[in-house]
């Protein structure tokens, strides 16, 4: 659930990033048709492209091929995963720079909890009495159109976070 939760924050950031020399693009290995269908459902506006058939996800260490998984040679977040049987990909983000000669450079990649700071809802929760209020990372997170209509505390308690 990390990726959709994270993606919910892209459009808000993009209101400003797009005017500050930074382009934010989401990439998935799913086909363009699948991406477009899900993007419409989530009402997301940011650019989201398909890397289907490309090495991009593998080159930047967020997707792993069957051979790597079978041999237990999956490297994620700059180390070998102890248990790599779980999945073919994990979340991450990479940054590139294009110079005046249109040469492209890879400048940064972050994985796992490096993405925490980009999830604004977590930063709000970190200032409240119950904190992230989860047993396991993101165990409470749903697609934003799948929450029950009335969020409520179990015994009517609630937390307020006012901004000015």
């Amino acid at each position: 659930m990390a990726a959709p939760f994270w993606a919910d924050h892209h459009d808000a950031a993009n209101l400003h990033l797009a005017h500050h020399d930074v382009t934010l693009v989401a990439v998935s290995r799913g086909t363009w048709w699948d991406i477009e269908r899900f993007k419409t459902r989530m009402d997301w506006k940011f650019k989201w492209v398909s890397s289907y058939g490309s090495d991009f996800n593998y080159d930047f260490h967020v997707s792993f091929n069957e051979d790597q998984i079978a041999k237990g040679e999956v490297y994620y977040n700059y180390e070998r995963l102890e248990d790599a049987t779980g999945c073919e990909e994990l979340p991450g983000f990479s940054v590139f720079y294009k110079n005046a000669s249109s040469e492209i450079f890879h400048t940064y990649s972050g994985y796992a909890r490096a993405g925490d700071i980009l999830i604004c809802a977590y930063n709000y929760l970190d200032h409240t009495p119950k904190g992230r209020n989860e047993q396991r990372t993101m165990d409470w997170v749903r697609h934003h159109d799948s929450y029950e209509r009335q969020p409520a505390g179990t015994h009517g308690q609630s937390e307020s976070l006012l901004t000015s």
Partner: peptide, 14 residues
Amino acid sequence: AASCSFSISCLVPA
């Protein structure tokens, strides 16, 4: 833009 940031999401092929 000069910088391009990619988030890579777990939307995998069917």
